[in-house]
Design a protein around this nucleic acid. Structure first.
Lengths: 166, 166
DNA sequence: AAAATATGTCAGTCATGTTGACATATTTAA
DNA sequence: TTAAATATGTCAACATGACTGACATATTTT
């Protein structure tokens, strides 16, 4: 499976497209389909995970910024965010400069939950990176960056690259 | 953005994980969020696209095989597949050896629809491959293959590699 | 003849997204 | 200082694409 399968130059455009699309579909699916254990018990889904992740990644995130990252409407966000706040996983502070803003923070409890959720995914991804090798990981990142919409690219790459010293 | 951003070895495990996860999330999202044009007008969604794709890719596919590929229940498949059959995009033939089976084929009309749907995605992906370069595409494929679940890998890679001469 | 298999379907539910309309608090601008 | 703009929240209705459980039909295997 190592020889011809991965030899890009021996593929037609159509073949490259199919292989890329299908691998992306199956790979993404297998990556995000974690064992339900932790989440389903608690009544949480992927939406909750995404919110916890981005808030944890950028403490003090404003609601508007979160909406832009997730690319959903505030009505959609509302339900999910509300339950996370009610159950004490996320805290909303009133903005200091602008008191209309709600600044979002993950609580200790929320961080514990997030860690439990990502535990498996982190293992999964790092194992895949190890298997594929650094050279391949670099290519993985480069292609995914190129797949971003032109309008999104700069902003998203900045977001992704943010606080990479932490 | 080319220097340190893509230098895998200068990343901690945590940083690799975050970058991989976020790029995969955003990249996948930007790739599958096509312009609604074609589909929404016709009342079709992503589920229809997936079915059309896999049936087109493997003419004569059995329902059970399709279910396994999509990893959904037959009840879920039913609604979507039914409308595709009703509207003449997919044809169901009775199996020759086993008359219980329904063998699925994309009609000419269905292939036209599929082409319209994928037009944009194909451009998008091939452009990204071009930008990133063959070396990167190879890495992209290798990492995604490694992200497949161990139980799935062999079967899926065979599926993906199937009829690559077409 | 009985059991297993491949498929289909009815009914109800859930998670996550959408629009549209409106409310409230706060900041900015005329 | 009032009026407009902004940041957030919420109610209601709806769409899509999953799920479970139960049952039906045709066909093949034992």
């Amino acid at each position: 499976m190592t020889d011809i399968f991965f030899n890009v130059k021996k593929h037609s455009d159509q073949q490259k497209f199919f292989k890329g699309m299908e691998l992306l579909y199956f790979g993404y699916r297998d990556f995000i389909s974690w064992p339900d254990d932790v989440l389903h018990e608690l009544g949480f889904g992927r939406a909750h995970h995404r919110i916890l992740h981005f808030v944890s990644r950028s403490p003090g995130l404003k609601v508007a910024e979160l909406l832009k990252l997730l690319n959903i409407t505030k009505q959609s966000l509302s339900r999910v965010l509300s339950t996370l706040v009610e159950k004490g996983h996320i805290r909303q502070d009133i903005g200091v400069q602008d008191r209309r803003q709600r600044l979002l923070y993950v609580t200790e409890q929320g961080q514990d939950l997030l860690n439990k959720i990502t535990e498996h995914q982190k293992e999964h991804m790092l194992k895949a990176f190890e298997t594929a090798g650094s050279q391949s990981v670099e290519g993985f990142w480069k292609v995914l960056s190129a797949l971003l919409t032109d309008e999104n690219r700069e902003e998203l790459l900045n977001q992704i690259n943010k606080d990479m010293g932490a």
